[in-house]
Design a protein around this nucleic acid. Structure first.
Lengths: 191, 191
DNA sequence: GTACGATGCGGACCGACGGTCCGCTTCAAT
DNA sequence: ATTGAAGCGGACCGTCGGTCCGCATCGTAC
């Protein structure tokens, strides 16, 4: 079909760009003052190649984010309990939320960069629908819990990147403390 | 002290600018494609006056938002139950959340514009701390509810403007339906 | 009504940024 | 070695938020 072997310098540049971008986002406090020109320069590559490789700013950040998120997604899709599909819903829901929270804690800058892209709300990202669908169906398998749809949205809202950043960054809440607060909250929602 | 009577044309322009801005934000689907020049032009005023009156884009949007939010804040601060301070906490919390949800429903564009200002997360807005403090102290007055702090954050996250926009705009959820879902969720959190 | 100083007006202007364009280089298939 | 295309890079463009400053307008004192 439309299969074309990519050129060697192209793949090398793509890798350099991803590495440079991650580095820069991790350093800078606010993601929006990492410019595309910065990324290209840090990777030792022209701006043209950057845009050719990723389309636009959103494409770059999405690629980075997806790469880092992939392990979590695999663990949820085919890993062992309590994250994997074999876990009973009442255990899986808190486990998934905790995993998501930990991911945001470990990759605050990326998650913030993704949400700060402007122009597309987090709810347009294809990831979001996956997480929401997963949580919804799990919640609906728990007896006595009506309204899995909105509950899933509300629970996901509790682990949004900017909230996490606010709690951990601006105020001094520690990682484990936040995890346990979220666990308490989730437990209360599950009844 | 440093009290200066403002000039009449200045107050007139300020009013025109606020009206024009509200109009434009209400019309446009995405707030970020209402430019400052657009606002100035629609108000029949120079860009210089716009920036002189509000400082910068964020200042304009904040002024608009604050003006529209003020009735809700007054109702909460000094109104009758269930919104006002005389209401018992277990009734006041859901009432406040419902009022906030209704506000976001009525002023989606403004709330979205405020959150989309980039550069400052919603958690830096001075409003947020007020709402959070109010909810927290109310929650802590309800016996058997530990952790009012995080709970308040999580509940507020459930009424964030972009989530509301996603539910009502992108998907077709109706106003009353959303209100009742939120009420259910809040009730479950309160136990 | 006139004169005058301060307040505010307005739009040309600026710097930065995301994104494009196109002549040139480099790759890899033959 | 040849060759055509895939990819490179950085000059360039349009737009936008924000500034600047000469000039008009307002309120006040007389």
């Amino acid at each position: 079909m439309t299969e074309r072997k990519p050129r060697s310098d192209a793949v090398r540049n793509r890798a350099s760009l991803l590495a440079a971008a991650e580095e820069l986002f991790a350093r800078s406090a606010r993601p929006e003052d990492v410019t595309m020109a910065d990324v290209a320069a840090a990777a030792g590559v022209g701006k043209g190649s950057l845009f050719r490789a990723f389309g636009d700013r959103t494409g770059l950040i999405r690629a980075l984010y997806a790469a880092r998120l992939e392990p979590v997604e695999r663990a949820v899709a085919e890993g062992p309990a309590p994250l994997g599909p074999s876990a009973p819903p009442a255990e899986r829901v808190p486990a998934v939320l905790d995993a998501l929270l930990c991911f945001k804690l470990d990759h605050r800058h990326l998650a913030l960069a993704l949400e700060a892209t402007g122009s597309d709300s987090p709810y347009r990202a294809e990831h979001y629908d996956r997480w929401h669908g997963l949580l919804r169906s799990a919640l609906e398998r728990i007896p006595g819990l009506p309204d899995g749809d909105f509950t899933a949205h509300a629970l996901l809202a509790a682990v949004r990147a900017d909230l996490v950043e606010h709690l951990v960054g601006t105020r001094g809440m520690g990682r484990e403390e936040l995890r346990s607060r979220l666990a308490d909250f989730t437990a209360r929602v599950l009844g």
